[in-house]
Write a protein that binds this DNA or RNA. Structure first.
Length: 426
DNA sequence: TCTGGGGTCCTAGGACCC
DNA sequence: TCTGGGGTCCTAGGACCC
């Protein structure tokens, strides 16, 4: 059997952990730039605060009901995520845990005898909660897709399920599939859902009755085949080894306010390039291709929000590198190629690809001495910036005034990563 | 002007996920 | 006035080769 463990309203739970006064009160967490709502506590959901909606639209409800609002605090969430995942790794050993996202992990439970599965589910929930203070939901079934179905239903009626659902008989599987609308199936997004409805496939159960030749034809080829097999209880999506190296690294942000001058954009792009280089070094890799994109502010904010026109360009470097200044330079040249005077921009980003292992980091005789020194400098910068959890050291190209920086008006303290921000108990 | 079959590699773009 | 950020996987189609 396979379990999926999912933290309940993860970002809200993290904020509440250090604010016991907010227990049972409505809480929301906003995206970067305080733009959208990306996490809601049950109490906030009950008030009708929508998911992924813009903050300004929900503001009336939020203010009328005294909902606690937070900007996203990724230092905090990252730390607590690590604690949750580490708990699971201690319980089931590293090889059986696949971290799927910041708040979700799959666990291979093949070693557990079937009759013990329900006890184990409860044990997972209680242990994580006791060790980390974060509440989780546990869904268990024969395949990943079915485990996701179980997990979703376990959250629907918490009073009855206690946030646990195990699909260990055919009857339970069928009942669960019938309660799952087609667009709620893991792997079915907006487009496929629309298409399936036209074929009169309304629930996960309907889809599970289709055969694989049908899936191959109508549901994106191999993707559809795997999905249907999984719904039928046949494992087709394997557990993945921990993905150590990203194949692509992106750093992108909305600007705090619209930007029209090239100087600000260069500063922002230099900053994003620095951050991307940092991520690259953390996985001991180097990149050979760097791309930059700019997003123009759209003319009007009509009913349908669209993302504005994106322009992008890239360059291939002579040799793969992870040195910040070697990435900032081409990034800024790319900005010069893209920037148009008179345009108004709202967002920019840097993407690194063609990523290879940097096997020549230390003590390579063939590297010049200056390159070795620069690499050493990078390590020193990374260490200082990491231990301070902020850009204490940065390249001058990143700018000092930074009027393009995103807005974060409701940021909570870095409780777990800064001495000054430790929670004080009277 | 006509003209096969089979293969690789690369890129752009679509679809999905949280 | 105000709408996030960071990924993965797959397919189709073009360029090129013998």
């Amino acid at each position: 059997m396979i379990a999926i463990v999912d933290c309940n309203s993860f970002y809200c739970s993290c904020e509440r952990l250090f604010r016991p006064d907010l227990e049972n009160k409505p809480v929301v967490v906003l995206s970067n730039n305080d733009g959208c709502i990306i996490s809601r506590s049950d109490e906030a959901k009950a008030l009708g605060v929508g998911m992924a909606g813009p903050y300004f639209k929900a503001k009336p409800i939020i203010e009328a009901n005294n909902v606690a609002v937070f900007s996203s605090n990724y230092n905090l969430y990252g730390d607590l995520s690590w604690r949750v995942m580490e708990t699971l790794r201690i319980m089931f050993s590293q090889n059986n845990v696949e971290v799927y996202s910041v708040d979700e992990a799959f666990i291979n439970l093949d070693i557990i005898p079937l009759e013990q599965i329900e006890d184990v589910a409860l044990q997972i929930k209680n242990t994580v909660e006791q060790w980390t203070g974060i509440k989780v939901s546990v869904g268990i079934a024969a395949t990943k897709v079915l485990a996701k179905v179980a997990n979703r239903l376990s959250k629907k009626n918490k009073a009855i399920t206690n946030c646990i659902m195990v699909l260990n008989t055919k009857e339970k599987v069928d009942a669960a599939l019938k309660q799952t609308s087609i667009d709620a199936v893991w792997g079915i997004g907006f487009s496929y859902a629309e298409k399936l409805l036209k074929y009169n496939i309304n629930t996960a159960y309907d889809l599970s009755k289709k055969d694989i030749t049908w899936a191959k034809k109508h549901l994106g080829g191999v993707i559809g085949i795997r999905l249907i097999q999984e719904l039928k209880g046949i494992r087709s999506i394997q557990m993945k080894d921990e993905l150590l190296n990203k194949k692509m690294i992106m750093t992108t942000r909305m600007f705090g306010a619209a930007v029209t001058d090239i100087k600000s954009i260069k500063e922002a792009v230099a900053t994003y390039a620095s951050r991307a280089a940092e991520k690259l070094r953390r996985q001991s890799c180097a990149a050979k291709t760097i791309s930059v994109f700019l997003v123009a502010k759209q003319e009007s904010h009509n009913a349908s929000f669209n993302r504005g026109t994106t322009i992008n360009t890239y360059t291939t470097l002579p040799v793969a590198t992870s040195l910040t200044h070697q990435l900032i330079k081409p990034a800024i040249e790319l900005v010069e190629r893209l920037f148009e005077q008179g345009m108004v921009y709202k967002k920019a980003g840097v993407m690194l690809s063609d990523i290879v292992l940097d096997t020549s980091i230390q003590g390579n005789l063939f590297l010049s001495e200056t390159k070795n020194k620069t690499r050493f400098l990078m390590d020193v910068m990374d260490n200082i910036n990491f231990s301070q959890r902020g850009d204490v050291l940065k390249f001058a190209a990143s700018g000092t005034t930074r009027n393009w920086k995103m807005q974060q008006n409701f940021h909570s303290p870095k409780y777990t990563s800064r001495w000054d921000d430790l929670c004080v108990v009277k």
